[in-house]
Design a binder for these strands. Structure first.
Lengths: 235, 235
DNA sequence: ACCTGAACACCGTTCAAGT
DNA sequence: ACCTGAACACCGTTCAAGT
């Protein structure tokens, strides 16, 4: 028993490393959201004191950079398996497939869009992803100048997400009538009330629970891609 | 002198009010960015202790809600002066003018887009703005169903801003060569390097310093509006 | 080289107390 | 009714110290 104290069950003391820190951070953010990712909680999850983390990272911002990098790497690995060789005429299909694949990855890391938006610097993984998009544009017949405008037009949609104006309700839809309390507002917001009355936001599969749903995302994406395709032809 | 102590120079003790708190918060955010807006700093600016604020506001989040509301009200006042009566055929011009006017207001409150995105609830001012957009769509010949899709496609662009993938450099452009250090990356990111080489990001008026510049914003906006106009015709 | 404990300078917020 | 002081429960981070 005393011996057990000095050479006990190995106590799987995996050494800390930047990679282990970052991967744990991703798991934590996936589980509890990015706001629950604190240096103290992260350290605790790793069985260590908060200050130990500063041996692998200079500041918390480095961790945010790092976890975004991990996610974008995951995106890059995913899209590299798509094996698309875009010809002149199906650049749109290739672009669409790439962006929707990126979106699927982001849907497993719901904090990622918000954090990605706060990272000003283009990391290596981000550059690699963008380079792949540019390749599709170029092989699709776009000039680099046109491709540049196109990237701006896509904005965050290039990564598979779009900022919505309203959140997707959050609470149980079952409990809430979308038109509740709007009768009294009918004179102030007649068009909103009328729109809600007509469509009632009732697509049965509109419960992705993220900031936009798949159908609307694809609608906006196709609108932009079609527009770009038309510009390409005009040149 | 002793009298001056008991009934001194009026000491313009403007009473606190929710409106004064919010307006001061906007000024503070305009000056130092949203991250410098703390309850303690805001109270200090008002010549009061931090805890006094909780008589006008239940939590800091209410302040964020409130200052967004003030900004969107400013937008609504601005666009209501546009005096557009969109006909069937220039709905696009009306929409464009409205959105670009909103953008001008947001450019004076650079923190606003980020905060706006975090507000999940559609406030009254936001609803009023959206209702105005829906009116333009409707009078332009869109069904409410089409207008609903259109709003999703616009996303944050409806308010005049778009999330960019990279920040606009930040530092002095004069000190930085956009192609610096990219020669060694030419094999890893050939398309990015080539694109930068060709366009060098050198539009002389691309220094708006916000998350996107005016030309690119309008390009993306027109792309979407043109696409929507085409859909409208197809219906 | 790697990890820690105590401390600092901040947060938002609660609570009981002052006028 | 309005404002305050002290305190609490958190942050990220510095620093000197342990092994």
């Amino acid at each position: 028993m005393a011996a057990a104290q000095t050479s006990p069950i190995p106590e799987p003391r995996i050494p800390l490393s930047k990679e282990r820190v970052l991967k744990t951070a991703v798991v934590l953010a996936d589980q509890g959201g990015i706001e629950t990712l604190t240096m103290r909680k992260l350290a605790q999850e790793l069985g260590v004191e908060a200050m130990s983390l500063y041996h692998y990272v200079a500041k918390k911002d480095d961790i945010l950079d790092g976890i975004v990098e991990l996610v974008v790497r995951e995106i890059n690995e995913t899209v590299s398996n798509l094996n698309l060789s875009p010809g002149l005429d199906d650049w749109k299909r290739a672009m669409r497939a790439r962006i929707l694949a990126a979106r699927q990855v982001l849907l497993t890391h719901r904090w990622a869009p918000d954090v990605l938006e706060t990272r000003t610097s283009g990391s290596l993984e981000v550059m690699e992803y963008v380079d792949g998009l540019l390749r599709i544009f170029k092989e699709g017949g776009f000039s680099y100048d046109a491709a540049h405008h196109a990237m701006h037009a896509l904005g965050s949609r290039a990564f598979g997400f779009a900022q919505e104006l309203f959140e997707p309700d959050g609470e149980d839809d079952s409990e809430r009538d979308p038109t509740a309390g709007l009768e009294d507002m009918a004179d102030r917001f007649p068009h909103i009330v009328e729109m809600l009355a007509q469509i009632s936001h009732n697509d049965p599969d509109s419960t992705l629970g993220w900031c936009d749903d798949q159908t609307e995302f694809e609608f906006g994406l196709d609108l932009i891609l079609d527009g770009l395709d038309r510009l390409r032809g005009a040149r």
